[in-house]
């Protein structure tokens, strides 16, 4: 694929991933009502592990083909799930404060955006450095303003 095509595919994949995230949050939220926040997250990680194992044929070859020697992968790169699980605990605590859901969501989005800007600026955790382009800054401002309107419009 040409770089332009990869860009387009990645952009569309990111939008689709966001929509999937909404579906996931909805399902896990329903499950949390049934069995509590910890149970919901535990269950989602467990069934997710099983689901990923069911599709091993899809990724086994790719791993064997990858030219990077196993020793070149830093150990911390395996800890994404650790950060994710800790996030669940922190947000379920914050939701039960006076911030409520909308405050927790809004601050969470702000935290994500600030981190991602820093990550691109300094190339954090082994992902390439990228300069922020004017178009991206404008797009970011529009998406943040729009998200704020949607969040407050549904309070």
């Amino acid at each position: 694929m040409s770089p332009r095509r990869i860009d387009l595919a990645a952009n569309l994949a990111a939008l689709a991933a966001g929509a999937l995230l909404s579906l996931m949050v909805h399902l896990n939220g329903e499950l949390a009502r049934q069995g509590g926040a910890l149970f919901s997250s535990w269950m989602a990680h467990g069934t997710g592990t099983v689901a990923a194992l069911l599709v091993v044929p899809l990724w086994w070859k790719a791993i064997q083909r990858s030219d990077a020697p196993r020793s070149a992968i830093p150990l911390w790169a395996y800890l994404g799930g650790f950060a994710g699980a800790v996030t669940v605990i922190m947000t379920s605590t914050a939701v039960n404060s006076s911030l409520a859901l909308s405050g927790t969501v809004a601050l969470g989005l702000a935290g994500q955006i600030v981190f991602s800007l820093a990550a691109d600026r300094w190339g954090l955790f082994g992902i390439a450095k990228r300069r922020l382009r004017l178009g991206d800054a404008m797009a970011l401002a529009l998406i943040v303003a729009g998200s704020a309107l949607v969040i407050w419009g549904s309070l």
Binding site: L15, A16, S22, V25, A128, A139, I143, V144, G146, S147
Partner: peptide
Amino acid sequence: GATRSTMLIIAGQV
């Protein structure tokens, strides 16, 4: 990259 991924995921999510 991280910034563009984050903003487009947020857009799709909202």
